[in-house]
Design a protein around this nucleic acid. Structure first.
Lengths: 196, 196
DNA sequence: CGCAATATTGAAATAAGTCAAACCGTGTGG
DNA sequence: CCACACGGTTTGACTTATTTCAATATTGCG
């Protein structure tokens, strides 16, 4: 059994017994999650939603039928699995090596590209239903520091973030500044037809 | 095509264009890596070795034959894939939320459990061919800070690390201190037959 | 209106980083 | 067999990015 997100935002997270929490990835429309685990495996993370979501539940036999029937579907699932691992690794790189501004900026770029692939970005940017607290939990920073860093980014005219809406003012410049290279997202294989 | 590590240590890593480097996981005997990627996918990470390694290369058709032929093998590969994702997520939790001592201690616990599963731990601990520099790159810290933290751990009689050999003096105490819970490694499904 | 959740601000504290030197073990070559 | 070169470790003094704490706005919403 797997879940295909049709609409809305969700996220994966892990927790420490003392309450510290780490968001381990955002789940956007088009994303797959909650795979059936073989045998006695226990899931190591939890999932929560940020907005109302529409989710298509795919029962195991249906998946097998689909995947077995068409090489296309099988390949798409392999691509999805790989890209989703690559995203997690890119977060690892961010948390381990990047500064606060770089982490937040890189995340913005990731989400921009992923949302663009599913047609959720327009000239005005995109809906961004993530509080500063959650942003902090995703980037391994403090909400206070996220706030200050966001102000810095605003002052530098990198982004406009208000009313749960994010707009990247100059994608090239931001991507350059935070060393974002979207190749790992394979946007061309993931629904999006190029153009920047 | 995949590679099965038979002997030796290796690791996955990612790099930033300016040279910063993040180790994204250690590859130990019994681990699988370098899967064939569908179509035009480009691998987002690199692999390097810490010691001489013996690696069994499995060609794609051979894998398919194996996996298709036996539900056991297929399940084992699914378990491996899941546990290896869980390890990456646990690193994310470490980098995002844990202190220096917790990160290093947690990594020691992870490696202890994984190596025990493949019979590479005895009463004296285990071989640990990782320099402090690499330990720093794995934990998102500075080599200098790793050094000082290690001294602290030594002083607290948590571990003995010398001559590329690591010994955890009181696993329970260390695991408790750094909030290590090995459930995500599923040691019982991964070769090891229990006993603490 | 008025709560409850967010966002923002300021001042003070601290974990971790930087820089730079010294130290150590070990293998190599003269 | 000594010297010295190399990678790794250790040390000290100092800087800084980020956290902490605590108060004050602001916003969305029933």
């Amino acid at each position: 059994m797997a879940s295909l997100i049709l609409k809305g935002w969700a996220y994966r997270y892990l927790m420490l017994p003392d309450g510290r929490r780490q968001i381990a990835g955002f789940l956007l429309p088009g994303d797959l999650c909650n795979f059936d685990l073989p045998g006695l495996l226990r899931l190591d993370y939890s999932v929560a939603t940020l907005t109302e979501c529409e989710v298509l539940q795919l029962a195991a036999p249906a998946i097998k039928r689909l995947a077995g029937g068409s090489a296309r579907v099988e390949e798409a699932m392999a691509i999805h699995a790989h890209v989703s691992g690559a995203i997690t690794r890119s977060w690892l790189l961010s948390l381990g090596q990047r500064s606060a501004l770089e982490r937040i900026g890189h995340l913005f770029c990731e989400l921009h590209v992923r949302l663009r692939c599913v047609g959720l970005v327009d000239g005005e940017g995109f809906e961004f239903p993530v509080t500063q607290i959650e942003l902090a939990e995703a980037t391994g920073l403090t909400a206070v520091h996220v706030n200050r860093t966001l102000q810095d980014m605003r002052a530098r005219k990198l982004v406009i973030l208000q009313n749960r809406h994010l707009r990247i003012l100059d994608f090239e410049r931001l991507a350059n500044l935070v060393m974002f290279d979207g190749a790992y997202l394979h946007p061309t294989l993931t629904g999006c037809k190029g153009h920047g």
